[in-house]
Design a protein around this nucleic acid. Structure first.
Lengths: 180, 180
DNA sequence: GATTTAACTGAACGTGCGTTCAAATCAATC
DNA sequence: GATTGATTTGAACGCACGTTCAGTTAAATC
């Protein structure tokens, strides 16, 4: 059910997908879904929460890098790979924030901020190492994440560029954009 | 009516806003809206089309720059200013693409590609001038636009940074990211 | 002030929504 | 094969949706 909901929410949007549609693709009547989720809102929230937990979990398991440049490269490649591997969850995580109830939104937003904070720390380390130069690490973090998130709007497995190609291209831009 | 619809679509999403809601905020009954739009879909399309026309129109009226670096700086500042000035239209233009009918989507998508193409041309000029170095201008264009679009997710008029501050920060990153 | 035109109302149309629940069905245990 | 517990069905609940339209009201013209 989660998988079907993820796919439909990503394709048509949370508000435009009915419980009957989800049930239909699962091969079941709408009522049966309520054995697995208390309501539609929780279904959305759980998908988004799972995604954020996986994102933060996967990054936290990443081995420490010897210096800030290596850490930023590791992050750049990790972020691109992680997001390219689950385009549907990513799409939902960024597009359906406003369809979360206020309490649920706060939970997800806090997780998102946690991720952002890790990257900001990384940039600050590079600045104190003297290898990065950016006047506002907070804004630079957001700029970099926005740039990397952009990959998901166009990247296709079967496309002209392979994932390593994309990683190389973006790493080159990320590196230069915060270089001294 | 357009203004109200723009605001509501931006706040709650096209699918989540009813014609009765729009009518209510206008101070009129739902039926009256149909004197001004044939249907809800056209209302969305017109808002998006207007936005894209304004974007392309405003950029095309920009004076030519003496060289590629100046042109890229002009573009960076223009893009940030233009988008910061109409956050609701921008939000809709990027979030409601999937709620357009297939024909309408094609129209908007073509306009978006036109904008992208202008920036790509600009990058290519810088490469041939020898002032830019980026292995894939098409991807670099998308990366830059994604980065600049990111401003709208956090920028607030009353915030810590003024618009010129933001322009300066992003121009510094844009410039370096494609530098030789 | 009568006449024409434009704008709006209010009710209705058929449809689909999220959710509930008694009844039916299925699976596992004894 | 009877009993139990978990799943699923199918119908129903009240409500909201986009859209239409005959009838009313307001504005503009003469």
């Amino acid at each position: 059910m989660r998988a079907v909901a993820l796919n439909l929410f990503a394709r048509h949007g949370y508000a435009a997908v009915s419980m009957r549609q989800i049930a239909g693709e699962v091969g079941v009547q709408a009522g049966a879904l309520y054995n697995y989720t208390p309501d539609k809102q929780s279904l959305l929230f759980d998908l988004m929460k799972d995604h954020m937990d996986q994102l933060l979990g996967a990054w936290s398991e990443h081995p420490a890098a010897p210096n800030a440049v290596a850490a930023l490269e590791a992050f750049t490649r990790f972020h691109i790979r992680f997001h390219a591997a689950r385009p549907e969850a990513v799409f939902i995580a960024y597009m359906e924030l406003r369809n979360l109830s206020p309490e649920n939104f706060l939970v997800i937003e806090k997780l998102r901020q946690g991720y952002e904070a890790e990257i900001e720390t990384l940039l600050r380390q590079g600045i104190s190492e003297g290898v990065f130069d950016t006047p506002d690490p907070k804004i630079a973090t957001r700029a970099l994440i926005a740039m990397l998130n952009g990959v998901n709007t166009w990247f296709r497995e079967e496309g002209r560029l392979s994932l390593p190609d994309v990683e190389d291209l973006y790493w080159s831009m990320v590196r230069k954009s915060v270089a001294v």
